[in-house]
């Protein structure tokens, strides 16, 4: 459900670690309600990009706004407006499902009644009502991942950052995870997702492909396939990363 409001905007965003440049003048604009994919090999700069937008890392130069807030000066406001889930599922294995949910509600300062209400909703959505008092480590990976997503969305942020959310999960669980992402996007949330699975890339509204810290292709999957005259994103990705020019 795209609107014409800008959710995330970057201009020449750059991050250096010593002499190494992890992200080189990245310029992207993501609209509200969009599912925006970041593709790239390992070490291409996807995670650095996300970390800068989430306020975990200060950019070296360039400009960026998230939900209209500046990443340099307004990181506190940004933090209230984003959800984040990383490749390591950020749940506490030794706490119960219910305790994990309550903790995330607590650190976002939600009122107790809101936490309890949303916890019930989340447990119901995941079909885990009867498991709420079980330890999280007993959950299958696919459930953990959906629970982690639910926790990241507990404070109802308009923008969601997912850093390789499906690594290590089987194809079936990935499929159902992406259904969840679609549902979330239909509720008007902007989703920023990094992945290296090409089938997932097809699900995105728009994609950017990174190589060595640079964004070298940007557009809807269908458009990218058309320009590069390839039948799948897999082939597009390989030809782009290998430096072939569009035919």
């Amino acid at each position: 459900m795209k609107t014409d409001q800008i959710a995330v905007q970057t201009e020449d965003l750059t991050r250096r670690f010593g002499k190494f440049t992890a992200v080189k003048s990245a310029t992207v604009t993501v609209m509200e309600g969009e599912i925006f994919g970041f593709l790239g090999a390992n070490g291409a700069g996807k995670t650095t990009m996300i970390r800068m937008l989430c306020g975990l890392l200060k950019p070296s130069s360039g400009r960026a706004t998230v939900s209209g807030f500046d990443v340099y000066r307004q990181s506190e406001q940004i933090k209230q407006n984003i959800g984040y889930m990383s490749q390591k599922f950020s749940l506490y294995d030794d706490l119960t499902i219910s305790e994990n949910i309550e903790f995330y509600g607590g650190i976002y300062n939600l009122p107790v009644e809101t936490i309890l209400r949303r916890k019930e909703n989340l447990l119901q959505e995941l079909g885990l009502q009867s498991e709420a008092e079980k330890l999280t480590r007993e959950l299958p990976l696919g459930y953990k991942q959906r629970l982690a997503l639910g926790c990241a969305l507990l404070h109802d942020p308009p923008i969601l950052f997912l850093d390789e959310p499906t690594s290590g999960v089987d194809p079936k669980a990935r499929r159902s995870f992406w259904n969840l992402i679609y549902l979330t996007s239909q509720k008007g949330k902007t989703i920023f997702v990094t992945t290296h699975f090409m089938d997932e890339a097809e699900y995105c509204h728009r994609l950017s492909i990174m190589r060595d810290g640079e964004i070298i292709a940007l557009g809807p999957p269908a458009k990218l396939k058309e320009t590069h005259k390839k039948s799948s994103m897999q082939e597009v990705f390989i030809s782009i990363v290998n430096g072939e020019l569009p035919a």
């Binding site: 989430c54 306020g55 975990l56 506190e76 933090k79 209230q80 984003i82 984040y84 889930m85 990383s86 390591k88 950020s90 749940l91 506490y92 995330y104 650190i107 976002y108 300062n109 950052f161």
Partner: peptide
């Protein structure tokens, strides 16, 4: 080590 610190740091805490 677990990566949960990052999850806390993206929150307003």
């Amino acid at each position: 080590e677990m990566g949960t610190m990052e999850q806390i740091l993206v929150s307003p805490v």
